[in-house]
Structure formats: structure tokens, C-alpha cells
């Protein structure tokens, strides 16, 4: 919710520090357009959600099919490369299949789901559209640990088994879902957790599991679950020297929500991250002074399917 005290409040400038304009990132090109298609409405209430989604969080609402079609049309002139659907839980939207079919006429699609609400009448038409398209449909299923013991305390009782059943269903429909796990375990257990994930996924018949591990974003509900950002965890002008800004999502993406266009999926609860109400307005540069920007700075475009673009070689 917008009223939550953000971790940013924790930082106090050191005495004698000179006030200066913070670093900003220009939109180099609109490569990716996101749709927060179900707003902050989700069937789950995960304890680490960076935008505090829940069944009763109506801070951001659904986008209509007609709205999405309008944005798709407007996006063509920008040469958008691909489209992402997130929420909330996108599969709660009755028009998701129609939206995906429409989007695949223009380009590839990624859908970020918790895997616990996958009715056949929504999965089936999307699977058919995916088969017929030249473009990929990536299903990203969030599971935060390779066992109920690790996942369920974060995502809710029974969600591990339900999400694994969702993975099985997506496999049956011909998808190769990317399991997206927020790193809720200590980093030193990475390798062990990755191995256990592979074993579990093979156990439900996923013979070539795809796994993406995400760093945690210490905002929203997560700042209370673990901790918020410390005062030193902030992007400074010096940190942007010799840094390749193309690694940051804000240099190549924007997200359409019911409340306007925001810079990225993470910062929609921050008023300063609302870039405007048209793609043109939203194409201005963004001041990356938010604490969560620090996580992106460290890890690159964490929200993208295949990791950051990497530094330019030449």
C-alpha cells in the first residue's frame, strides 16, 4: 500500500554532506512494456511481496482488454521488443487469454504467475496461441524455495504443492516454465538450494528445469519480514561513473498500471516513479534515488527473463 513507510526514510545524510542532484537514468529505448494487468490484487499474501499484493489490496486495479489493446497500438511506434504481464496474479483476469493472443500479433510475451490459479479455460487458449505464434511465451512461476518448509512460510500454507501442480499443468500444455525464486535463504546455501530445486522439479516430470534466482527487494512487506535498506545502500553519482546503465531495467522498460505509467514493476508505490499517462510522457529520465534501485544496481535487470544485457564488449 502507498501509505507504508518505505525503507528510504531510514537514511540520514552525514553532517556536512553537500546536497546534490542524484544520479538519473535516461530511457535509452522502450524495449520492454509491462502490464500490471491485475493491479495489486492477488490470491496470495506473500510475506516478502515488494508491493504488498493481496486479495484485498485495491491500490492498483485491473486493466481492461480495451486499455491493453490501446497500449499495444501506441507501443508499435516505439518498436517495443517484448511484453510482460504481471500483477497481482495475472491469471485472475478473465481477459488474459484475449490479451495474450493480441500481444502475440506484435511480439513475445512473458507472464509472471504464482502458479496456484491456472484454470484450463485460461491456460488452454494461451497455449494454443503460443504454439501458433513465431514468438515465445515465457511462463514465470514464483516458488521461493525447493520445499514447503522453505516456501510456505513466505508464500502461504500449501502454496508449494499448489505451485508445483501448476508447473506440472504448464508442462502438460507444452510450456517450459521458468521457476523464479526470491532468495529467501542465506546466499551460502545457493548451490544446495539450486540442486534441491532441480531434484524436486525433475520429480514432477520437468526433465530440463529452468530456474532463475532473484535477489530480494527490501521494500513493501519484505522490510518487515527481514529488514529494510541501510543508510549506505543507495546509488550515488560516483557509483554511476563507468557503470553501464543499459543493465538497469529503467533504461529500457516502463510499466502500465491502472494509476498511470511507472518506471518499473518494483517502484509503483512511489509517487515519484509515476512517469506520466502516455508513453511519450513516460519516456523521460528517472532519478534512481530509491533504495530498491540499489538492488538493481548491484544485480542488473533482475526482472528480465534472461538476466542483464551485460556490459558492451566494444
Amino acid at each position: 500500500m502507498a501509505g507504508l513507510p518505505l525503507a528510504a526514510a531510514a537514511g540520514t545524510p552525514s553532517p556536512g554532506a553537500v546536497e546534490q542532484e542524484g544520479p538519473s537514468v535516461p530511457l535509452l529505448a522502450l524495449d520492454t512494456l509491462w502490464f500490471q494487468v491485475t493491479g495489486t490484487i492477488c490470491n496470495l499474501r506473500c510475506s516478502h511481496c515488494f508491493i504488498s499484493c493481496a486479495p484485498d489490496n485495491h491500490a492498483f486495479g485491473f486493466l481492461s482488454l480495451q486499455e491493453v489493446e490501446g497500449w499495444l497500438e501506441e507501443s508499435r511506434a516505439y518498436g517495443v521488443r517484448d511484453y510482460y504481464y504481471t500483477g497481482g496474479e495475472p491469471f485472475m483476469h478473465a481477459d488474459l487469454p484475449a490479451m495474450i493472443e493480441k500481444t502475440l500479433e506484435l511480439g513475445p510475451v512473458s507472464i509472471l504467475t504464482n502458479g496456484t490459479v491456472l484454470p484450463d479455460h485460461r491456460v488452454d487458449p494461451i497455449a494454443r496461441a503460443a504454439r501458433e505464434s513465431r514468438y515465445s511465451v515465457e511462463m514465470r512461476v514464483s516458488i521461493d524455495g525447493p520445499s514447503p518448509e522453505m516456501n510456505d512460510p513466505v508464500r502461504g500454507e500449501g502454496t508449494f504443492d499448489r505451485a508445483m501442480a501448476g508447473v506440472r499443468k504448464l508442462l502438460d500444455y507444452g510450456f517450459l516454465p521458468i521457476i523464479t525464486a526470491a532468495q529467501v535463504w542465506p546466499p551460502e546455501r545457493d548451490e544446495e538450494v539450486r540442486r534441491e530445486f532441480m531434484t524436486r522439479l525433475r520429480g514432477v516430470g520437468y526433465d530440463r528445469p529452468r530456474l532463475k534466482i532473484l535477489p530480494r527487494l527490501k521494500i513493501g512487506r519484505e522490510q518487515f519480514r527481514d529488514r529494510g535498506y541501510g543508510p549506505g545502500e543507495r546509488v550515488t553519482l560516483e557509483m554511476m561513473e563507468d557503470y553501464d546503465e543499459a543493465q538497469l531495467l529503467c533504461s529500457s522498460s516502463r510499466i502500465v498500471t491502472s494509476e498511470g505509467i511507472f518506471v518499473c514493476p518494483i517502484l509503483i508505490e512511489r509517487p515519484a516513479a509515476r512517469m506520466g499517462y502516455t508513453l511519450k510522457e513516460a519516456s523521460r529520465k528517472f532519478d534512481i534515488s530509491h533504495k530498491a534501485c540499489y538492488t538493481c544496481w548491484l544485480h542488473g535487470a533482475i526482472c528480465s527473463n534472461y538476466g542483464a544485457a551485460g556490459r558492451d564488449a566494444v
Binding site: 524495449d31 508499435r76 518498436g79 513475445p108 514468438y135 515465445s136
Partner: peptide
């Protein structure tokens, strides 16, 4: 890649 590059892009 073929499947992740829209023609408009």
C-alpha cells in the same frame, strides 16, 4: 533470437 525479437523492434 527469432522468438524474442519482434519485427517492430
Amino acid at each position: 533470437w527469432d522468438s524474442t525479437s519482434s519485427t517492430q523492434f
